[in-house]
Design a protein around this nucleic acid. Structure first.
Lengths: 166, 166
DNA sequence: GATTGATATGTAAGCTCTTACATGTCAAGT
DNA sequence: ACTTGACATGTAAGAGCTTACATATCAATC
């Protein structure tokens, strides 16, 4: 369901787009929020057209199809936003490694934490490249705040691991 | 793969356990890191036993089976911890709603943000109940730091939405 | 003795997501 | 002419996850 919502949201916010366009937007603007490749997006758009949530335009150049959100699609999107109590579940491999960190000896734990820290750093760099004035600004601010917090956590844990007294 | 690792990790850290025990541990200690119900855990344990990662003990009272991690299971667990560069992907419905927030008018956006904030508050309460001295302490600290940051973000966004000048 | 609730394990259908495979167009550079 | 890279769309197999269904034991309470 969330994939549909994400697609409807992009079509609503940024206007008609092809599956390819939408896949690019998932890669760039939406990447820190939801991920989907073209192999998931193309079939989903076909189903959404069948359900009347989007209109598939006629094929353009290079087989390009442009999808437009329908009034029913807009209605469903608003309904989900207002009525769906989003669950804050997390399935994080990083958090799992953090959870299991005590299973490692000190040197291995430090190496793992350094890799995790580097991952956060890279993620921060990616997010910092995005415009804070773009459509997804609220989500971007949340992402930035969370990744900065995560970096700080990584630094604290590393300091403790390196301090023999810890 | 991560489900296997989580199960191996619990068996390694907390000793032999049944599928039921492991499901309970997923609900309690591991819940903020990875989720899995018994319908996923039971079949996975059977496959893991077939792959030599765990030993299934003989059936005890009420059909209870106790699984023990094998040396091969321990080896695989350590290998994953040390070699697997965990990807920090997030698929968050909450972040998706935050992303799409500008699609709503002011009152609806405030209502949605209040619901999101309440979700974070509830999550914080849950995490605060857990012992900071337990096995998963590092992950718990990360979870607490992230949820506190998220709450702060929600408060800021709500303040902006309520301020007509924003 | 009957009911309730926690313990304990499983199957099956269906949805979601990833990975690998497969095809073809168009523009720009060499 | 040829190659490269971006554009553009798909299918299929399999892995991962959720929801609903199904069964049975044991202890404690009524």
């Amino acid at each position: 369901m969330s994939l549909r919502i994400a697609l409807l949201g992009l079509l609503s916010a940024k206007g008609p787009a092809s599956g390819y366009d939408l896949a690019k937007k998932f890669e760039h603007s939406l990447n820190h929020v939801w991920q989907a490749g073209h192999t998931q997006i193309y079939p989903e758009l076909v189903k959404m057209a069948a359900d009347g949530l989007v209109d598939a335009g006629s094929e353009g150049v290079r087989g390009r199809k442009t999808y437009t959100i329908t009034p029913e699609g807009t209605r469903r999107l608003h309904e989900w936003m207002i009525e769906h109590a989003a669950v804050g579940v997390t399935r994080s491999e990083v958090a799992l490694q953090a959870f299991l960190l005590p299973l490692l000896d000190r040197d291995d734990a430090i190496a793992v934490m350094e890799r995790i820290r580097a991952g956060f750093q890279g993620r921060l760099a990616t997010l910092e490249c995005q415009s804070p004035a773009s459509f997804g600004a609220y989500a971007l601010r949340l992402g930035l705040a969370q990744v900065r917090t995560s970096l700080q956590w990584a630094d604290e844990v590393l300091a403790e691991l390196r301090n023999p007294a810890g």
